[in-house]
Each structure stands twice: as structure tokens, then as C-alpha cells.
């Protein structure tokens, strides 16, 4: 058993990708907790897909792809806010419009670049444990320090703002700056997650561990800490699954995280489906079943 855990560690790439995965598991859960309580899971999804053109442009210009991805992510979030505030289009529609456009631009650019370089789109989409360089580990570590440090310093203000934006504004907090700060932290987190989880699935690592913890504890900081533990466990297990079964690391991590979520969903002491079977209506009493029966009865 121990052999199974230790054997892969002799390879440098596995050490690097495990290190990255642990850091990513922590910051995704912490930042994702804010997204979840603000009902902004879709924003995480949008920004993660929107980083792709930044990756391609950075590749073309020969600069760090972390930087390109970060800039593209922030621009997309700003554009979503712009469409939402300057037109009657609602936020979810604005996200759908912007992120599909950015993603399409990214695919187009990468396809063009691919002809002359070896750059694999699938690696950006789903993560690749073989591709984690020492540079990536350093970048991810710096991002992790920035994200965790900023949230530790601004915790009480962010708690107030995300719970009650108007109350926070009325007390004189600069809520637009706090909001923009959260977008910066989210974009940094997504960029750090590119190599191990991939942009197509990072939203799962942002939301699922926090949501799992949300079913088990009742305060935001507890949700972040427990979420981080779950995120790290999922990341490590996913990496080993990826190594032994030769599957992309992103899907492996996400499936483990989903397993944790289902456990909490079924067995949470406060919200569990099986521990509180009386909470929701059964199939026979459910409204849609009643409506179907009503329709059948009138047909006669």
C-alpha cells in the first residue's frame, strides 16, 4: 500500500504536479467559497473558459502563459460587468455571451498556433501532470501566498460585503474595489489551476469542495478550511489516479471531489438526504408527479 504512494514520488514531474495540486486544492476551495455564497459559480466557469485566448496570445508573443491567461480572465470579468450594467441583459446571459466568445477566440488562436508549434489544446482543457515545470510550481506558490494572504487580511470586510453588499456600502466600505479584488483573486486562482486541473474543469474544484463543506459546517471560515482539506485530498488522490490509470489529471481530481460531495450530500448530520429523509417529498407526493396524474385524470 505504502509502496503505491511512494513509488511515483521518485519522478520529478510527479513531485512537481503533486505540489501544485495541493496548493491549487487549497486556494480553489478558499476563493470558491466566496463564489458559492455569492451565487457566482457561473462567473468562475466563465472566467476559466475566457483565459484561453490569453494563453494563445502569450504563446505567440513568447511571454509567460500565466500572465496572458490572467489578463484575459480579468478582461472577460470586466466585460461581463460592463454588459450587465450598461444594458438590460442580465448577468447570467452576459456571462454566456462573453465566455463563449472568448473561448471561441481562444480555440481559433490555438488552432492557428498549433500548425507550427507543439502546443496541445487538451492539456489546457483538462490538465496534464507531465507538463508541470519548476517555473509553474514557483508561479503557483507565489499565487497561493498572494491569494491566502489577501483573504486573511481582508476577511472581515469580504464577509460583510458578500453577505450584505448594501449594508457594507452604507457603512462606507468601498464595495466596488472589494468586488474587483475578488475577481483578481479568482482569476489568479484559475490561472494557477490551469496546468493540473485544466480550464474546462476548474469550476468543479472552485465549487465542489466548498459546497461539500457548506453541508457540514455553519461559518464561512470553517467552510474555507474544511473545503481546503477536501480540495487537497481530492487533488492528491486525483494525481495518483492520473498516474496509475494514465488519465488526464483534471477529470480524476473532479471525480474524487464529487465523491466527497455525494458523501456529504447523503450523510451530512444537518442536511443529509439519508440522515434527514423527511426533509423533501418522496416521488409519490412530489408536485410534478401530482401534476402528471392530474393531466392523465382530465384526459378521460
Amino acid at each position: 500500500m505504502l509502496e503505491i504512494l511512494i513509488e511515483p514520488l521518485q519522478y520529478g514531474f510527479m513531485q512537481r504536479s503533486l505540489m501544485t495540486a495541493i496548493l491549487v486544492g487549497i486556494i480553489c476551495a478558499v476563493v470558491g467559497s466566496y463564489l458559492m455564497v455569492q451565487r457566482l459559480a457561473l462567473l468562475g466557469e466563465s472566467v476559466s473558459h475566457s483565459v484561453l485566448p490569453g494563453v494563445a496570445i502569450a504563446f505567440i508573443l513568447g511571454v509567460d502563459i500565466f500572465l496572458g491567461a490572467f489578463i484575459a480572465g480579468v478582461i472577460s470579468a470586466v466585460m461581463i460587468a460592463w454588459v450587465r450594467t450598461r444594458s438590460p441583459v442580465k448577468e447570467d446571459a452576459a456571462m454566456g455571451i462573453i465566455y463563449s466568445a472568448f473561448f471561441s477566440l481562444g480555440i481559433t488562436l490555438i488552432t492557428i498556433v498549433q500548425k507550427n508549434n507543439k502546443i496541445d489544446l487538451l492539456h489546457f482543457l483538462f490538465g496534464n501532470i507531465l507538463g508541470v515545470t519548476t517555473r509553474d510550481v514557483i508561479n503557483t506558490s507565489v499565487i497561493a501566498v498572494i491569494v491566502v494572504g489577501a483573504i486573511a487580511l481582508l476577511y472581515k470586510e469580504l464577509l460583510f460585503y458578500t453577505f450584505d453588499p448594501e449594508g457594507a456600502q452604507a457603512s462606507g466600505l468601498p464595495i466596488n474595489l472589494l468586488d474587483f479584488g475578488l475577481i483578481i483573486l479568482m482569476s489568479l486562482t484559475i490561472v494557477a489551476s490551469l496546468t493540473t486541473v485544466g480550464l474546462a474543469l476548474v469550476v468543479a474544484l472552485l465549487i465542489t469542495p466548498g459546497a461539500t463543506a457548506y453541508l457540514l459546517v455553519k461559518r464561512l471560515h470553517q467552510m474555507m478550511i474544511l473545503g481546503a482539506v477536501i480540495g487537497v485530498l481530492a487533488s492528491i488522490s486525483g494525481m495518483y489516479l492520473s498516474y496509475y490509470f494514465n488519465i488526464p489529471s483534471g477529470p480524476a481530481i473532479v471525480m474524487v471531489a464529487f465523491g466527497f460531495f455525494m458523501l456529504a450530500f447523503l450523510f451530512s448530520p444537518t442536511h443529509g438526504v439519508l440522515t434527514h429523509p423527511s426533509r423533501g417529498p418522496g416521488l409519490a407526493q412530489s408536485q410534478i408527479w401530482q401534476e402528471i396524474r392530474g393531466l392523465l385524470a382530465t384526459k378521460k
Binding site: 458578500t162 459546517v217 461559518r219
Partner: peptide
């Protein structure tokens, strides 16, 4: 929202 009574009053 994941907060206790104490957390919310502290926001003041």
C-alpha cells in the same frame, strides 16, 4: 449564508 448570529452582529 454560512454565518452565525455572532458573525452578523460583528459586521457592525
Amino acid at each position: 449564508y454560512p454565518a452565525t448570529v455572532w458573525d452578523v452582529v460583528m459586521m457592525g
